[in-house]
Each structure stands twice: as structure tokens, then as C-alpha cells.
Design a protein around this nucleic acid. Sequence first.
RNA 1: GCGCCCUUAGCUCAGUUGGAUAGAGCGUUGGAUUCCGAUUCCAAAGGUCAGAGGUUCGAAUCCUCUAGGGCGCGCCA
Length: 587
Amino acid sequence: MKTHIQQLLAGALQTLQQQGTLPADLSFDLHVERTRDKNHGDFACAIALDLAKKARRKPREVAEQIVAALSISALITKVEIAGPGFINFFMAPQALLRVVNDILEAGEAYGRSTVGHGQRVQVEFVSANPTGPLHVGHGRGAAYGAAVADLLVAAGFHVHREYYVNDAGRQMDILATSVWLRYLEQCGEEFTFPANGYRGDYVQQISMRLRQMHNDLFRRQAQQIFAGIPADEPAGGDKEQHIDALIERCKQLLGAGHYRTVFDAGLNEILADIRDDLEQFGVAYEEWFSERSLTSSGAVERALQRLKASGHLYEQQGAWWFRSSAFGDEKDRVVIRDNGQHTYFASDIAYHMDKMERGYTRVIDIWGADHHGYIPRIKAALAALGYDPNRLDVLLVQFAILYRGGEKVQMSTRSGQFVTLRELRGEVGKDAARFFYVTRKCEQHMDFDLDLAKSESNDNPVYYIQYAHARICSVLQQLAERGISFGPDDIRNARLDRLVESHEIDLLHMLSRYPETIETAALSCQPHQLAHYLRELAAALHAYYNAHAFLREEPEVRSARLVLITATRQVLYNGLSLLGMHAPQRM
RNA sequence: GCGCCCUUAGCUCAGUUGGAUAGAGCGUUGGAUUCCGAUUCCAAAGGUCAGAGGUUCGAAUCCUCUAGGGCGCGCCA
């Protein structure tokens, strides 16, 4: 409907330009919007106000000329000029009723569009270090990223979802060393566990299984391990130096092969846990991309060579620096350390180069807000490699603060005292978690009320929406019990023009807004628009249900109403599915 | 200190990308229902859009400054 009006207006403007009534070189973007006030019709356009300025004419005069040039449409009953020069459109009743048939014909496809034209988009999200289970902070990124990706699919994009696995680097070495030390404790060795090691229970589990498989194969004497290692923090030393020395000792005592075995035991087990966790959260990926593969494939080397060849690298104090400050970053960044190892940033450059080489028209990275400082350097690297940095969009997701019983739930990663995503799902369920996470704009700090999320009451929007769906199912369930026939023929022959009540008109308007909601939510990467829409749609259904009986009316009205709520059920189902939620038949 | 983000009703948040009289939910107050599921519905009260300037036909939305809050400023990942 919206695009129909846009086409009408575009036609009128073209006519006026050809006539010379309006300058031919006038540029404008047609913006048709839904009205807030019913007195202003169904759709409004402020184009005359925009053009009046550019053409130096009176807005109302321009509006009148546009309206005069509009071609006639059976879907529009009235066009009005109002206020300073708004053009208001009033929809014909049959145009509104058409939405019901559109929905029933399209079924699960209702709301999908082709605006994306099959453009290839990559969405990378979560990408948490596999050093421990996902926590509730990752959960928001997961729910948000999945919803954005699914919305883009619905809008006709070809989406590639990807998880970047940080399976290399110091944090992973710390994990491997932590696993090994716990293993040694189980072998009977006695020592003080490093302050900077990973202390979570899952590390114990991994080391236990490691020992079950390999017995004492990796056992070394504590004395030998800690000989000459600088003191840990509690002993008055530096915890970073302490752990780094332990990592080196671990590698040296185990040898490359056995070290890799211990390392992979930690990596694989945690990664398997993360995969399973996300799967149960309804989040699926096309690809799990290994950071390590960037080194083995030579991508890192190649990226650095390209930068070096184009003069964007320089050597200083034994290290190689990328001149990112030449591309808007606040300072230059090291890519190869003086010990010859490349930095995490070097991998990141290679990874983003690889994304560009894969030919996506658009690359979306979803990061935690604490990483915002990395955006300029990544964009700088893309520019230095000769790519358009605007192909990359980095979306930042703010943290979520949990509340239970009105109190903030305290969390800190270092002590291992964080609420995991798995625990959250266990407490409030998948549906509530998915919904609550995406109900706020991503750049907005979020208060996550656990009590509300798990309450079975109308305060809880998840229940409210799902109940609307279940309620329709319940009504349709009554048909058989009451011996009322309502089959495909009844649907096809339904007298939809019997839908005249204000609640019915409201509901029809809500239903017709769904495709627009999907499109704008997708194009702006704002799934919260869909979440809010679903709440409004559910409210319209509940209000209708309460105001009118469906099953006790005369057959024509009854059938029309049943068709309307069947369509509503379909849209509720489609919207809930897009957010990864169930649409229950009964609750 | 520098940079990025946030600030809208008592609370949690929307606000169709610059449009018409700023909206929901919760909470508060008052009301409805012999019923297809009371996990429902209707109504009222509640606002200096953090503050001050500016841009223009028109600003919660764009620009500048100020205040408050969050985050980031490693040859860590």
C-alpha cells in the first residue's frame, strides 16, 4: 500500500516536471508515512513542503498541483491537503480487506520482501573467546545478531552467519595452562593455582576428562614446573609475568605435540558447549571461522605483505606498525611484536580482508560496546587495503544488567561469578530470553528483569503475545466441538466486507503494517521494532476478542471474523518465529 | 585528560530517520465481564523530551556548549 502511494506520487511528480510546472532538475526522496492521527487519513506525505522550499513556491500550491496530477486509484477514496501542505491519503475499505487474503495466500511467507535483491551480507556475532561458557552478556549479542540475520533473510538478503573462533593467542594459552594445572592437582601434585588462571568449574571438568583419557601421561613434578618462575601476585609478584612464565614452562615440559593435545581438549570441549548452548537458544551459524586458520592459510602474512607493499607499515623499536593514524585512527598500531609474533589486530586485519575477498556487498560485525575503540583501526585497515570501509558496519551491543527481586545481580568475570546464558535459559526459558534481549535498541543499556521474564501474567509481554496466539487457536478449536463448519471454502467465500467494527478495522491496519515493520526493522538492523509491533498486534487482538463474540454470530459475520483471526494467528506466528520464539497452541 | 555511546511520564522503554496535539507497558486511581480461556478489556491522572544556545516553514530527532551516567584509550585477546 505504501509503495502503491509512492508510485502514484512519483508518477504525478514526473508529469509536473515534464509539464515544466516543477523544475526538471529537482531532486527529492519520496517519503510516505503512516499517519498518527486518523483524521489525517491513513498515509501522509510531506513532499510538497520539501519541494516548496527548493522550488521557492508556496507549499499548499505545490501540494494542490501534485494532487491534481495524481492518477486515479481504486485503492484510494480520498486525497486531502492539510495543515501547511501535507497530502493525506484515505484508503478504500477493500484495500484494507485485501491484506487478509494476502496473508492467507502467502502464509509463512507473508512479510517477506525482495528489497535485499539477494545481496550477500555477512553477519558475524557473539564470537566470544572459547575460554569458558557464554554468559548473559553474550546472550544479548546472540539474540540480537540472530534476529538481525533472520530479518535480513526475510527482507530478501542472502545472509551468511559466522562465528569467529579465537582459537589462538594468549588467552587460549592461559586456558590450556589452567587445564593442565588442574589436571596435575588431580594427579596429586601440590602447588598454588595462579591468580590469573581460569578458575571455573568447567576447567576442572575438562581436566578430569583429560586424565580419564590419558592417565598420568602429562604429569610433571610441581617442583620442576615452578622452579625459577617469577612470583605470583599474592606472593608480591606480577600475575601477568607469573602466568606467562607458566605458559612457557608448560609448552617446554610437554612438548609441542602434547601441549596441543591439552590445548585442544580445552578448546574443543568449550566450543562444543558454546555450540550446543547457541543451538538450544535457536541460534545457528553457516560457518565457524577459525582464527588459527588465518595463520596456517597464510592470510595474515598476505595481509601484512599487502600493507607493507603499499607503504602502510613501518618498523620501529623492533616491531612493525600499521600507520592507521593516516586513516583516522588516533594512533598507529603494532601488527608484529618485537618477539616476531603477530598481534591479535594482525589476525583481525587478515580476517576482514578475507571477508572482503569473499565478496560480500555488506559485512556486519556485532560487538560488545566495550570494543568500540577498535572500529577506527579496522576501518583504517580496510581503507589501507583498498576496500571501501563503508562496506563494514559495526553494531555495538550494550551490556545487560540483570535484576532479581528488584536487586541488581552482581557479576564479575574474573572471579568466575557470572550468570551463564545456559543458566538464564534455565531460569526464564528460551522464548522470554530471546524476546527480552531484543526488545530494546542495541545501543541502549538494558535492565533485564528476571522476575518479569518468568512471570506468568499479563505484565509479561512474552506471555501476552503468546497468549494471543494460543487464544486464537483455542477459538478455532471450539469449532469442531460446536459442530461449526469452517473449511477452505468458507475461507475463500467469506464476506470480508462484513468486517466493519472499529476493533476489526484497527486489527486490519495492524496486519497491513507487518510487511513494512519487517522491512524497516531489517534495513535499520532494529529487531526491537518487531518486538514492539508484536505487542501491539496482540493488544489489538485481545481488545477485539473482548469486545466481540466470534462463534455466536450469524454465519456470514462469524466466518468473516474467523478468517480475520486466522490471518492474525499467521502474522503472530511469523513474527514470533522471526524472533526465534514458539507460537504455542495452548498454554 | 582525550574519544565514543546514553539521558523522553513515578519505573522500564517506543517515537516510522526533520513533520501535524510527544506515545505504550508497568505502577497509581476508577470502572467492565451471566461469555469463544479473567494470562482479558475500558478510562483517568501523570511531561521544562537532562539544561542552554543555534540551524528552518517545522526539532525529542541535526549542529555547538554544559551537566550527569556508561565504556574505551597495551608490542592483551
